[in-house]
């Protein structure tokens, strides 16, 4: 059953499609939206109400700015930020005060983070 809602907001396109191929293949994860322009993130969150936002941008400094803005408005949202040209992936969950927590930049790393965070969120509720 697909019960984890994920919004993918990645640029460059290739990285977005590769992330979609990984996450979209999972039986328990639903891709609720896919956007290319970070300016559309707020609207997309309001429309799709995701549990997770997976975001990758070309410029690393822009990535952290976007994450901070999104988390200010949506502290319950879990965010996975991928640096496309580096082997680094970060996890944010503002309501639990998790910020810039480095996770394994791999398929397993991303999927495990999504599932563990979802379990934790369910327990909290």
């Amino acid at each position: 059953m697909k019960n984890i809602r994920v919004l993918v907001a990645n640029r460059p396109r290739l990285m977005r499609e590769l992330v979609l191929a990984t996450v979209g293949d999972q039986p328990d994860i639903e891709i609720v939206g896919e956007i290319q322009d970070e300016m559309d993130i707020e609207d997309a969150i309001a429309t799709t109400r995701p549990d997770f936002l997976i975001v990758a941008l070309e410029k690393l400094n822009r990535l952290s700015v976007i994450c901070d803005l999104v988390l200010q408005n949506h502290p319950q949202l879990k965010v996975i930020a991928i640096a496309p040209d580096r082997n680094s992936t970060m996890f944010y969950w503002a309501s639990l005060e998790i910020k810039s927590h480095r996770i394994e930049a791999s398929e397993d790393g991303v999927l495990e983070t999504i599932r563990k965070a979802s379990e934790t969120a369910e327990k909290i509720q």
Binding site: L18, V19, T22, N87, S106, E107
Partner: peptide, 13 residues
């Protein structure tokens, strides 16, 4: 590639 996520996802596709 040094980007493991890239390697794995591309391999999957």
């Amino acid at each position: 590639s040094d980007n493991r996520l890239f390697r794995e996802s591309l391999g999957r596709i």
